[in-house]
Design a binder for these strands. Structure first.
Lengths: 341, 341
DNA sequence: CCACCCTCTGAGAGCGCTCCCAGAACGAAC
DNA sequence: GTTCGTTCTGGGAGCGCTCTCAGAGGGTGG
């Protein structure tokens, strides 16, 4: 039972005194107890309990130069990035893995270029051991700002080509997943397979488009329509597609939200899914997939796991363990067959 | 232009040497420069720039016992709390205000009672100067855990009655807002005003119910129906109400999401809004309010501002400035008239 | 019984900073 | 010119911890 003295917090010195050992031995015990004989370990442990000792983090950081904290940089270029379920899952994965590593999550919310200076100062100030960031728009200046601080960083999502040559990142196999989706439509015997792509300044959208093209090497350009990853844009893109190519019999949509919009348009127009037009999405986002009708066949990716992998990669970077070169991770995707294709 | 030496980061000592002053003077300049003659200030400033000096946070914390970080405790008792737009707004307000105070946001994600120990250790470990938490369910053990760490804390939302007597909190005037909403319905000449309440283990729901009762002191119990703040529960509660009291001519719903559900039910049953039944919600959540038809009359609360106020209150607590006693803040609400009432 | 070796322990030196306090410097007043 | 007062400056201690390194202690083999 910790002594509830209201005084200053006990120091290692106090613990050592109480246990009848030196500060060094007490320190060893507190940090795992390797190389200390069991009876002494026991004595120190008891002293720690009795005193309610908690190590002083600042003092430890001062000498070890490690502060057990990782920054998660959340940029909010336009709207609600935070309330995005995608983001939530990824941050949850990060949080869990960080906890497993006994590290803290420092949230850096970037609202615009005006914050870049502050962020750079913070990252460069040695407050955190490393950073986790997300690749957003290709034209974002943030990656360069982060890069300049020379702090270890891992990205979620493949960064834009312009970014520093080889920053480590974790991304799902967007291209491969897209290929699988399109191949499935081909196997279904569909002939006029369209694609509704995402914004062309996001690598995930680009990669998915590439995957589509990999399979349909000379797909007619009229089978391509672009959205911006929102439900409304998916509905609009589908309408355009239908107007342009009434013979379309399948669509691979770059994300579930747009696929949901496309499904709405198809229903409005009395087009049967999957009989007339088969639809495949991407993401396998529970909240979307559940409520579409028919239920959406889509490409699944384990977002939470990607968050965890980001942390693991960063930790390996920090430990100096593992490959010095920034080995990125591409996680596999899998096609989940439901009713829409 | 900072010297891009790859070596160890420059210390205050180095700055002092370069500026030809003592470490103490350099420190004074770095911390505002009060009581140092202008020419010396200038010299030190230049040295700082030339060396690219950044203060070592750990060393500073070690002596000042202040670490410029605040924990935001996010408990996720059941589902997606994070992707809740309510939460996002509040966290945004917190983040902005924290930035204004040069403080960092450390995110503590609590997934269940199993994390309580870890959280207590972290909060008690002096990693952060204070904490921000949210009052959730009345039966949550977390507040007690936080309280025991004796760390300054401010809650978002009025804590459950069982919580430590007088913890400071920021909440909107749930009761007053509810009163205003109900009075509006009364003024409209409605006679059978029902209420769809939220879960009875959340103080916001309780307070709103109280507000309803304040105005309708002897409302018939058949005019009360309970939901759980979800859209579906609102739809269900409205259906029950309609079955039980076909003569109902107005409903005050405890939040917008449930009001949206209620609106759906009313439309399904061919009940005209507001002609037959007037509906008032609570929260004025942009994402919900926009898409209902008719547009929803509701009680507005400034959520982001509440987040900022939480930080301001905490900072005052930490400064020792302001009232020693935990003065909570109740922010005003306002009725926003739209088409549903 | 002594020499030797291996394991454990403790003394002490910092990590980079703030802040107290003594004293330098300078000006004003007599 | 001397003294006093005020304003600035610098020396130094110490925040709580880790880590190196020398040496204590105990076991084993000759």
């Amino acid at each position: 039972m910790p002594e509830q003295t209201t005084g200053p917090r006990p120091t290692l010195e106090a613990v050592a005194a109480r246990a009848g050992v030196s500060r060094a031995t007490a320190s060893r015990v507190v940090n795992g107890g390797a190389g200390v004989r069991p009876p002494l370990v026991e004595k120190v442990r008891r002293a720690v309990d009795e005193l309610g000792y908690v190590p002083n983090h600042a003092a430890r950081t001062l000498v070890t130069r490690r502060n057990g904290a990782v920054a998660v940089i959340i940029a909010e270029p336009e709207f609600r990035i935070f309330s995005d379920p995608f983001f939530e899952q990824q941050v949850r994965g990060i949080s869990r893995e960080l906890t497993a590593h006994d590290a803290q999550l420092v949230l850096l919310w970037v609202e615009g270029p005006g914050d870049h200076d502050r962020i750079a100062r913070y990252l460069g100030g040695g407050h955190v051991d490393g950073a986790l960031a997300f690749s957003l728009h290709n034209d974002d200046a943030l990656p360069a700002v982060i890069d300049r601080t020379r702090i270890p960083v891992v990205y979620g999502g493949r960064p834009a080509p312009g970014t520093s040559p080889a920053v480590p990142f974790v991304d799902c196999d967007n291209r491969g997943g897209a290929r699988e989706a399109v191949r499935h439509l081909v196997d279904l015997g569909r002939r006029n397979i369209a694609h509704i792509s995402g914004p062309d300044d996001q690598t995930s959208a680009i990669d998915r488009l590439h995957g589509y093209r990999d399979v349909l090497i000379d797909a007619d350009p009229t089978l391509l329509s672009r959205g911006d990853f929102t439900e409304e844009s998916g509905a609009r893109a589908m309408a355009e597609l239908l107007d342009r190519r009434p013979d379309v019999d399948a669509v691979f949509v770059a994300n579930d939200l747009m696929a949901s919009g496309a499904l709405l348009t198809l229903r409005e127009r009395g087009v049967r899914v999957p009989e007339d037009v088969a639809v495949v999405g991407f993401d396998d986002m529970a909240s979307v997939v559940r409520r579409t009708s028919p239920s959406l066949t889509t490409v699944h990716q384990d977002i939470e796991d990607m968050g965890r992998l980001m942390v693991k990669l960063l930790m390996r970077l920090l430990d100096g363990t593992g490959p010095a070169s920034p080995a990125s991770v591409i996680t596999p995707t899998s096609l989940v067959l439901r009713d829409s294709a």
